[in-house]
C-alpha cells in the first residue's frame, strides 16, 4: 500500500511536468493546427538556460534557494519565450499560407537544429544541473518518502496551470486566442492582429516548457542537448491522449502518462518505461483519435 502511495506521488509529480509541456503543444496546435515538434527542444534549451543562470543567481542571492529559484524560473521562462517567438517568426511565419505538412517538416528541421546546434554549443556530454529546490524529506516513514522536490514540482505546475487558465479564459488576449483558434479570418475581422496572438501563444507555450525544464532537471539533474526528445514526445502523446487543442485534456493526458509510466517502471520493469507512452499513443489512435476530452473538428463552411 505504501509503495503504491509512493508511486502515485512520483507519478503525479512526473505527470505535472508532462502536462506543462503538453499545454504548449496543444495551444500551438489550437491556434495553428500543426504540431510544433521543436517544442521538446525549447524545453531542453530551458534546462541549459537554468544551468548557466542558476549559479550566478544563487551566489547573488547569498545562497538562499527560496529566493534564487523563482528568479531563475522567471529568467528561464523569458529566455524560452523569446526563443519560441523567434522560431515562429523565422521558421513558421513565412510558411503561414503553405500546406501544413511543409510547416510540420520545418518544425522537425528546427528540432534537429536545436538538438545538434545544442551539442555544438553546449557539448554532447551530460552536465550536472545545480540544485534549485532545497532537498529535504517532508514525510519520511519507513515506506514512504515525500521530498520537497515532488511537492514543489506539483505546486509549481498547479500555480502555472491556474495562471494559464486565468489568462485564456478571463483576459481579452485569452479570448482573442480562442477566437483565433476558431477561425483566423473571422478573428481578423474583429480587429485582432493574428500575428500578435500567435506570438503570444508561443510566449505562453515556451514559458511553460521552460518551467517544466527546471522542474524536470531538478528531479533528473543530468542534462544534455538531446534530453528534450523523450519528454517532448511523451508530452505530445499526452496532448493527443487528452484531445489535442484542449487545455484541460493536455493536463489530464500529462497526468495519465506520468502515472502510467511510474507504475510501469515501479511494478513491471523500467525497461518498458519509455515504451508505454507510445503503446498508449497507438491505442488512442486506434480507438479514440479525438482523445479523451477532444471533439471532432468542426466542419468548415
Amino acid at each position: 500500500m505504501s509503495e503504491f502511495l509512493q508511486q502515485v506521488i512520483n507519478g503525479i509529480s512526473l505527470g505535472s511536468i508532462y502536462a506543462l509541456i503538453a499545454l504548449g503543444y496543444t495551444m500551438i496546435y489550437g491556434i495553428l493546427r500543426f504540431i510544433n515538434f521543436a517544442h521538446g527542444d525549447v524545453f531542453m534549451v530551458g534546462a541549459f538556460i537554468g544551468y548557466f543562470v542558476a549559479p550566478h543567481v544563487i551566489s547573488l542571492t547569498g545562497g538562499s534557494l527560496w529566493i534564487a529559484a523563482p528568479i531563475v524560473l522567471i529568467v528561464t521562462m523569458v529566455g524560452c519565450s523569446a526563443l519560441g517567438v523567434t522560431i515562429e517568426k523565422l521558421a513558421y511565419r513565412p510558411l503561414r499560407s503553405r500546406p501544413k505538412l511543409t510547416v510540420l517538416i520545418t518544425a522537425i528541421g528546427v528540432s534537429f537544429f536545436l538538438e545538434y546546434g545544442g551539442q555544438l554549443v553546449f557539448g554532447p556530454d551530460p552536465k550536472l544541473f545545480p540544485t534549485l529546490i532545497p532537498s529535504s524529506s517532508l514525510i519520511n516513514t519507513q515506506h514512504v518518502v515525500i521530498g520537497t522536490n515532488s511537492i514543489v514540482v506539483i505546486l509549481t505546475a498547479i500555480v502555472l496551470m491556474l495562471l494559464l487558465r486565468f489568462i485564456v479564459y478571463n483576459t481579452k488576449m485569452g479570448t482573442a486566442m480562442r477566437a483565433v483558434s476558431f477561425d483566423h479570418r473571422v478573428a481578423s475581422l474583429m480587429g485582432i492582429n493574428i500575428d500578435s496572438v500567435i506570438s503570444f501563444t508561443f510566449v505562453l507555450g515556451s514559458g511553460l516548457a521552460a518551467a517544466a525544464s527546471l522542474l524536470y532537471a531538478s528531479v533528473y539533474p543530468s542534462i544534455n542537448p538531446l534530453m528534450g526528445i523523450f519528454p517532448g514526445l511523451k508530452a505530445f502523446v499526452a496532448a493527443v491522449l487528452g484531445g489535442i487543442g484542449n487545455l484541460a485534456g493536455a493536463a489530464l493526458g500529462g497526468l495519465i502518462i506520468g502515472i502510467t509510466e511510474t507504475f510501469v517502471s515501479g511494478y513491471i520493469s523500467s525497461s518498458y518505461r519509455d515504451a508505454i507512452a507510445f503503446a498508449i499513443l497507438i491505442l488512442i489512435l486506434l480507438f479514440k483519435p479525438s482523445g479523451i476530452l477532444g471533439r471532432h473538428d468542426r466542419d468548415k463552411v
Partner: peptide, 20 residues
C-alpha cells in the same frame, strides 16, 4: 454564413466585436 465564434459565449463574441 454568420461565422460567429462557436467556442465563445455570446458575451465574449460581442466583446470581441469591440476588440480595438
Amino acid at each position: 454564413g454568420r461565422m460567429i465564434f462557436a467556442n465563445l459565449t455570446v458575451r465574449e463574441n460581442l466583446e470581441m466585436g469591440a476588440y480595438l
